[in-house]
Design a protein around this nucleic acid. Structure first.
Lengths: 163, 163
DNA sequence: ATTGATTGCGCAATCA
DNA sequence: CTGATTGCGCAATCAA
């Protein structure tokens, strides 16, 4: 039982691509020209036990030369990339947070607006009621006594609410 | 994503000595990344070049023994962790997208609400104007002619708009 | 102590 | 070619 099967691929021999990570970064994110003690790693053996007499020909302009890990230029590029990655991730995270905050702000704004709507609706309904009442008064031929208009408090609340 | 972690550390000062990554994952990506022909066996572990008779005291319960990369259990744990990591990241990403969409929805809702407010405000102002006009008519001693009340629409549109 | 979930980090492939 | 993204694995923590 040495097969923690989890890959959904079919017949795929496990190809172990060992990668040796040697890092020696300073805390600062400057350009560490001086690398701390170089730790030599297990010698990489380009063993190419390919299927029957494999040949890695066409070295001129093919794909990718196996980038020498020891190369100075390699390290330099890695360093740069690491920096870029860090930056990118930071931005990504920042953006996520901003978005989250935006949600909060919008939610707040929304509540504010809804409250306002409620208020306006209420006001409107009150005014409408007044209008209706008045209309009734007129229709009922209620002739307001000249002078002090009593505005008889008819408890007639006609709910004409439309929403 | 806001993971209220414990604010304990200050500077994540990590050292990385030499990490041997034995990637034994099958071609997860269906990308033709056919490039590695490097079959290397991490045959060993860096001996501990301690300065002056290093001593691994207290073998019973102490720090972490540099987990044997060859160990079966190690691989198993790694595999599990890799899975967990994948899962976690997927969720994280999903959540980010959801949040973004939430922003869009809220924005829309906001516009809707603002439009509604505008409408209600307009209605209200109209009604208020009517009221004011009427009040003026009354105050102006406009005595409603008994009998046929024509409700003469005085073309006097006094814009008394407030708000 | 064991185990899944998170997180920071480096590598490599790919995009722009 | 160079920087930005993205998927992935490792290891240290965190949190149960």
């Amino acid at each position: 039982m040495s097969r923690p099967s989890q890959p959904k691929l079919t017949a795929t021999d496990h190809n172990g691509v060992s990668v040796i990570q040697s890092q020696a970064h300073a805390a600062s994110s400057s350009l560490p020209a001086a690398v701390a003690g170089l730790q030599q790693v297990p010698q990489l053996v380009p063993a190419n036990p390919s299927t029957g007499g494999g040949k890695v020909l066409a070295p001129s302009k093919m794909k990718k030369p196996p980038a020498d890990k020891e190369s100075e230029e390699y390290r330099q590029r890695r360093e740069r990339n690491n920096l870029a990655v860090k930056k990118s991730r930071m931005r990504s995270k920042q953006k996520a947070m901003d978005t989250q905050q935006r949600v909060n702000e919008l939610k707040e704004e929304n509540e504010r607006l809804e409250a306002k709507i409620k208020l306006l609706s209420k006001e409107l309904s009150v005014l409408k009621d007044l209008f209706l009442e008045h209309a009734h008064n007129l229709a009922d031929n209620v002739q307001p006594p000249a002078g002090a208009e009593g505005s008889s408090p008819a408890p007639n609340s006609t709910s004409t609410n439309g929403q």
